[in-house]
Design a protein around this nucleic acid. Structure first.
Length: 482
RNA sequence: CGGGGCGUAGCGCAGUUGGUAGCGCACCUGGUUUGGGACCAGGAUGUCGCUGGUUCGAGUCCAGUCGCCCCGACCA
C-alpha cells in the first residue's frame, strides 16, 4: 500500500473506463474541462473546450440544414400556459417536467409562462399567423436555442435540466411532403453522427409508446454506449396535422379549399457530446474525432539547451498546418516536461501529436503520434502536411470502425424471453428481437429488465414475438436507455 | 421520487473523548531541468456546503436544508 512514486502518478489519473464507467465519465468531463457543475441543480457550465466541440457540431449541422433549404430564426423562451395546453397529448407528455415563471419583477403574472421544453406550441401559433396560401408553403425554419426540462436525474451532457439544441419546425402542403422532410432530416442526422462524430447507430421508427408527445410518428437515431445503455441521439417527428389543428394553421389550397398544414419537427442536442465522450474515450481520457475536435493536432517542441531553433521550427510547423485550414495548437510552455504534455493532450483527446526536437531537425523529419492507436511515426519534413492530413483521415475512419465493431458485438438476437433477459442483464447489450406489436408485450421489456424498444427495424420478423410467442409484426431493437 | 454514500484550501484527503484546522498534488517566486507525468529552496491559500440548536467552547454532537455521486421508478 505504500507506493510513493505510483501514488504520484495515479493522483491526477482518471478512473479506468473498464473499472467504473460512470466515474470515468464524470472524471473525463471535469478533468478535460468540457463542463463543470453549476450552483443550480442539474445545470452545467459548458466550458470553452466543451463549447468548442458544440460550435463545430453547430457549424457542420447548420451547413447541412442550409443545404436542405432551411433558414434560421429565433422564437422566445417563454410560452403562455394556454398555448402549451392546446395539444392534449403534447401537454400531457411534457407537463411533469416544465419549469414555470409566475412573477415578473414584483408583480404576479396573470398567466404563468412555461420556459420552453420544446417550441412546437409557440411556433405553431406563429405559423398560423404566417400561412395563408399554399404559396406560403413549405415553411422550413430551424432555431438554435436552449430548452429546460425539469429532470429528476441529471448528468453532464447526457441529461441536464437546461440544454442547448437545434429544433427544426416545418410546415407542408401535403402529408407526403412532410413525411419526406422527416426522412430527409433523419438522414442528415444519421450521416452527421456516423461520419463526423464516428458514432455507430441503429435507426428507425419509435413505437407508439415511445414516440414524441403529440407526434404521429417519431424516427430516431440510437447509439449504444459501452455500458450497454442506448442513447437517443436525434429525433425527427411526423406531427401530422395534430399541431396544425391545435393552433389552427390553415392555408387556401389551389383547389379553393381551406386545409390544415402538415408539420414536422426534429432536434439534436448537446447530449450528443455525451455520446462522443462515451463512445470513443479510453482509460487515458477523451479521444475526439478529428472533424469536431477543437484542436486537431498539437505541436510539442522538445527543447534542450538551445531552445530557439526548435521553437522557431515548431512555429513553422504550426503555421504550415494552419495554412491548410487545420486547427492546431502549439504548446511552447516552459516548465512542463514533454511527458507531462503528452499525458495532458491524450486526456484532452487531441487526435494527433506532433513532436519536434533537435534530433528530428537534423534528420529532416517530424514525429507524429496518433491518439487513437498510440502509433508513433517519423515522417520526412517534406511530407509533413500530407501525412498529417492522411493520419487525421485515418483516425476519423478508425474511430468509426471501432465504434461499429462495439455496436456489432453488443447487439444480440434473442428468440425466447429468457434469452432476451440474458442479453440485457448479463451481456449488457442491445437485443434484436421479434415483437407482436402489442403494448402488453412491450411493457414486459420494461417491467422485467427496465428496457425499452429503442426503434423498430425495417427487417421483417423471422421468429414469433419474443414475449408472447404469438405472430410477430416487427423486428425491434430493445435496450436499457439513458 | 425511493434506497445507499459523500460535502474540510483549486483537486484528492486527514482531523482522536468537543478545545479554535493539517497533509499531498496543483498554484506563486528564484534556480537547475526538458524525447512518457522533473528537482531544490522559499511563499500564498479556508465563512470546515448552508441555516438553526446544544455547549463556556462545534469541522466534530443534534435538527433541518441544499448539492453531488451510485443503485432503482420517469425523460432528448
Amino acid at each position: 500500500m505504500d507506493k510513493p512514486s505510483a501514488d504520484k502518478k495515479t493522483l491526477d489519473a482518471i478512473t479506468p473506463k473498464s473499472q467504473d464507467i460512470s466515474r470515468w465519465y464524470t472524471d473525463v468531463v471535469l478533468k478535460a474541462r468540457l463542463a463543470d457543475y453549476s450552483p443550480v441543480k442539474g445545470c452545467m457550465i459548458i466550458r470553452p473546450y466543451g463549447y468548442a466541440i458544440w460550435e463545430n457540431i453547430q457549424r457542420l449541422l447548420d451547413a447541412e440544414f442550409k443545404k436542405t433549404g432551411h433558414v434560421n430564426a429565433y422564437f422566445p423562451m417563454f410560452i403562455p400556459e394556454s398555448f402549451l395546453t392546446k395539444e392534449a397529448e403534447h401537454v400531457e407528455g411534457f407537463a411533469p417536467e416544465v419549469a414555470w415563471v409566475t412573477q415578473g419583477g414584483k408583480e404576479p403574472l396573470e398567466e404563468r409562462l412555461a420556459i420552453r421544453p420544446t417550441s412546437e406550441a409557440i411556433i405553431g401559433h406563429m405559423y398560423a399567423k404566417w400561412v395563408e396560401s399554399y404559396r406560403d408553403l413549405p415553411i422550413l425554419i430551424n432555431q438554435w436555442a436552449n430548452v429546460v426540462r425539469w429532470e429528476k436525474v441529471t448528468r453532464p451532457f447526457l441529461r441536464t435540466t437546461e440544454f442547448l439544441w437545434q429544433e427544426g419546425h416545418t410546415a407542408h402542403r401535403t402529408h407526403e411532403e412532410a413525411k419526406a422532410e422527416v426522412a430527409r432530416m433523419l438522414e442528415v442526422y444519421r450521416r452527421f453522427v456516423e461520419e463526423d462524430l464516428a458514432i455507430a447507430l441503429v435507426t428507425g421508427e419509435k413505437s407508439q409508446k415511445e414516440k414524441f408527445a403529440g407526434a404521429l410518428h417519431t424516427f430516431t437515431i440510437e447509439a449504444l454506449m459501452p455500458d450497454g445503455q442506448a442513447l437517443q441521439s436525434g429525433t425527427s417527428h411526423d406531427l401530422g396535422q395534430n399541431f396544425a389543428k391545435a393552433f389552427d394553421i390553415k392555408f387556401l389550397d389551389a383547389d379553393g379549399e381551406r386545409k390544415h398544414v402538415w408539420t414536422t419537427s426534429w432536434g439534436m442536442s448537446t447530449r450528443i457530446i455525451g455520446a462522443v465522450i462515451m463512445t470513443h474515450g479510453d482509460d487515458k481520457g477523451l479521444r475526439l474525432p478529428p472533424r469536431v475536435a477543437p484542436t486537431q493536432a498539437v505541436v510539442i517542441p522538445i527543447v534542450y539547451k538551445e531552445a530557439a531553433p526548435v521553437l522557431e521550427k515548431s512555429k513553422q510547423l504550426r503555421q504550415r498546418l494552419l495554412d491548410r485550414g487545420w486547427r492546431v495548437h502549439l504548446d511552447d510552455r516552459d516548465g512542463f516536461k514533454p511527458g507531462w504534455k503528452y499525458a495532458e493532450y491524450e486526456m484532452m483527446g487531441v487526435p494527433l501529436r506532433i513532436e519536434i526536437g533537435q534530433k528530428d531537425m537534423e534528420k529532416g523529419q517530424v514525429c507524429l503520434v496518433r491518439r487513437d492507436t498510440g502509433e508513433k511515426a517519423f515522417v520526412p519534413d517534406t511530407a509533413f502536411e500530407a501525412e498529417v492530413e492522411r493520419l487525421l483521415g485515418e483516425i476519423q475512419k478508425n474511430l468509426h470502425v471501432q465504434a461499429k465493431e462495439i455496436l456489432r458485438r453488443r447487439t444480440f438476437p434473442a428468440t425466447t424471453f429468457a434469452e432476451f433477459v440474458e442479453v440485457i442483464k448479463e451481456q449488457h447489450g442491445m437485443a434484436d428481437v421479434a415483437w407482436c406489436g402489442q403494448a402488453a408485450c412491450e411493457d414486459r421489456f420494461k417491467a422485467e429488465v427496465g428496457a425499452t424498444i429503442r426503434c423498430l427495424r425495417d427487417a421483417s420478423p423471422h421468429h414469433p414475438c419474443v414475449v408472447c410467442q404469438g405472430p410477430a409484426s416487427r423486428q425491434v431493437y430493445v435496450a436499457r436507455a439513458y
